[in-house]
Design a binder for these strands. Structure first.
Lengths: 345, 345
DNA sequence: ACAGTCGATGCACACGTGTTCATCCCCGTA
DNA sequence: TACGGGGATGAACACGTGTGCATCGACTGT
């Protein structure tokens, strides 16, 4: 069942190549890196020999002397979250483009995992860390602030000193969503948020509140419910709204997955989206335009944000610093899940 | 904006700890690994000093001598694919559990990326590789067969010698889906597949064919269309089916994302799922039960499959070999997207 | 012909860790 | 007291690569 090559054959080293080419290992080292110090002809010969013998430079040995691993660590709550997956995809693409490899680790928002992951990254001497965990508790902050390599936070700009960030304009985008619902004629608009203490939730809720206030609408605390950002909890949170004596005519959801669950619950109550209740989300997952009805939401350029975070990190690694924190705008995408409320309400 | 710690401060080495503890670096090495050779009292003292000075063992230096990196490489077509993300989540969880870190790399099914990724993994001396790329072309196979570390293929058992595999019982599950549609009374059942030459597609199609034959139904080539596994191509492929003079009354889709697009196209033609056309998928993404209607599909235990692949790899790394290849069964999950065909057809 | 210059290459050390072997010290026993 | 044994520790080498410095040969200009 296995290849004919013995599995424990130790890989060819630079010295093996040197012996074959009848030069010193120093010359091989230079030749393989295309140093101008070595004569073109011998360089070519050495490279040919290396190629033929399947030589692969040992990144471990190299990084030991260069103090660079060309490696970054990425911590996420869960890669199974489609938003996170989009971001990581962007990160990996630009990392690969620059010769970097990415270590991926789930934290599942468990403090134990968080410390073990960061420790592991430190041991592996990553050149930088990207945290897309959305929640940076006090203990986690303490941990990260002692890390010796640059850190970029994604969707979590931290008030403190130890990290740079790439975020989306949560408040502004939320204002636009809420304004959109108000403009349609809604007056009882619910907020279905996330209870895990994410900064994004705080900011999105604050945008929702501001828009209400600007329109002279009251903030009804009973219309504010929270889940965990997954469909099932969106569903149960929506259920709490539907049993109200005076249920909302529109719901602004923390993210598209919550909205998915909310829509499901609404249908199961025999109501129609958007005819009876309008639903808006946040993220614009690439399934969202295929939902029935297609979901009104805020487009968050996930891949691009990941890409920006990575480029930012690379710049810090190279030049020691990057400019001010980046905030990308969100784009309101109006689709079929939002409509004017029924006249008789 | 930065931590007070100078960024280029070189991390404490084992020798620094040795100096502080007034012992040799050998003793430190032993103490940190809890070797019985060192006196418990001094071991404790050394560990305290190491902890206080924030020492982190250099994985690079260690792996240089141990010839083990405690690292695995994972190649996927795209982490943005929710199925892939589920699998990778399972992989990472069990890897982390065993002290391993995972390198994640997208290949985007581009041959260039594939070779560069594998080369990069080799340089980093990963202890093993998991390929969840679903497609292993001739060139890729040639590449992988020369790799010196164990390889586990996911959903792509390869007839050759160089790799182990974890797969789902594609053919059997597809037979069950098709049988389910036949049992509902359908006689014109389409197959909406994947055109990228994935083995999964071949097997699922073959299951579809077998079930038709077993029921004495003819295979109509016009009812077989293919896309790329994403919603948009599911939509366009469905469009080709809808313009037929005698369109199908049911569609079995290669995966849930294709089904999502197909359902959208059906609705856009003013038709109803499942009343006019039944739709079945494959994967059971965790959004699928929230679709409208909820999707009939085959549950593929993504996380568990990832976990199994990783455990398999670990076993090969540890003991040199693992048993025969693993095939997990798929579970037909019947939901609202499939129903008997209209009587008048 | 000779000194000086420059291009190409080798020598030797460093990076941080694990491990074998030797050394040293302390204790018990003959 | 002398000897042996065992437990704890240090010295030294190896892992594979990069690089400063020395060396060596060839070429140029006088």
């Amino acid at each position: 069942m296995r290849s004919p090559v013995p599995i424990n054959a130790k890989p060819a080293s630079i010295k093996d190549i040197a012996r074959l080419a009848e030069v010193s290992h120093a010359t091989v080292s230079r030749a393989l890196r295309n140093s101008p110090l070595v004569e073109p002809k011998t360089a070519e010969r050495i490279q040919r020999i290396a190629r033929e013998s399947g030589y692969r430079t040992s990144a471990a040995a190299r990084s030991l002397v260069t103090r660079r691993s060309n490696t970054v660590g990425v911590v996420v709550t869960s890669i199974a979250d489609p938003f996170v997956a989009g971001v990581v995809s962007g990160i990996e693409d630009t990392a690969n483009q620059h010769g970097f490899c990415v270590f991926l680790a789930n934290s599942h928002a468990e403090p134990d995992r968080e410390v073990s992951v960061v420790r592991s990254f430190e041991e592996r001497r990553v050149d930088g860390i990207i945290v897309a965990a959305s929640r940076v508790g006090a203990q986690y902050e303490e941990l990260l602030s002692h890390v010796q390599v640059p850190i970029v936070l994604l969707n979590n700009q931290h008030p403190s000193v130890f990290a740079h960030s790439v975020t989306i304009a949560n408040a502004q985008a939320s204002i636009e969503v809420t304004r959109h619902l108000i403009a349609l004629g809604h007056r009882r608009i619910a907020y279905l948020g996330d209870a895990q203490g994410y900064q994004s939730d705080t900011e999105r809720f604050s945008g929702y509140r501001k828009a209400l206030r600007a329109a002279g609408l009251p903030l009804d605390r009973r219309l504010v419910v929270r889940g965990d950002g997954k469909p099932e909890s969106g569903r149960t949170a929506m259920a709490r709204l539907l049993v109200l004596a005076d249920p909302p005519t529109a719901v602004f959801c923390y993210n598209d997955l919550s909205a998915l669950g909310a829509m499901r619950e609404i249908r199961d109550h025999g109501l129609n989206v958007p005819h009876d209740i309008s639903v808006a989300g946040f993220d614009d997952l690439y399934i969202s335009e295929y939902m029935d009805p297609p979901l009104t939401t805020v487009r968050q350029p996930m891949q691009q944000m990941g890409s920006m975070a990575m480029e930012r990190l690379l710049q810090i690694i190279a030049s020691g610093d990057a400019g001010p924190d980046v905030e990308v705008p969100g784009e309101l995408v109006v689709r079929g899940s939002t409509a004017p409320p029924k006249k008789d309400l």
